[in-house]
Amino acid sequence: MTLSTDLRSAITHVMDHHGGPRAAMLESLRMIQQAHGWVCDAHLEEAADILGVSNAEMEDIATFYSLIFRQPVGERLILMCDGASCYLNGGEDVRDAVMARLGIGFGQTTPDGKYTLINICCVGGCDHAPAAVIGRDRKLVGPLTADLIDEILGEAAK
């Protein structure tokens, strides 16, 4: 057992109050991720066990939704918008700058485990294009420039 007692009871609560085990699967995965940053095999299996669903059923959901992470992610997530409005405002230059600075591509984590860079569809920040959402609280940042990137990454490095 590796999930905290709180998390285990939260999962049970969702199951009892939001439509049973099936509907609680996704919510459980989200809660695990909230607590641990990602969903490891042991946690997925334990949650499946609490809900009485199969591991395969859990994995079905976990791998369908793009913001459930089945691999470890860095301390800080950078979800860069790759939508058209951001593209039209130089989003790809910013993207290249970020990649160059961090030395990683989309879907990768820096070797020091600090950053994970992910591309995501339009983040609803077209009025701040190019935009990204950053961190576990998904803070919207933009319009991004190379300078701003330095600032943001510098701040996080502290």
Binding site: V53, S54, N55, A56, E57, E59, D60, T63, F64, S66
Partner: peptide
């Protein structure tokens, strides 16, 4: 219950 579809 042990066969399912994964990914998208």
């Amino acid at each position: 219950r042990d066969l399912d579809v994964m990914g998208a």
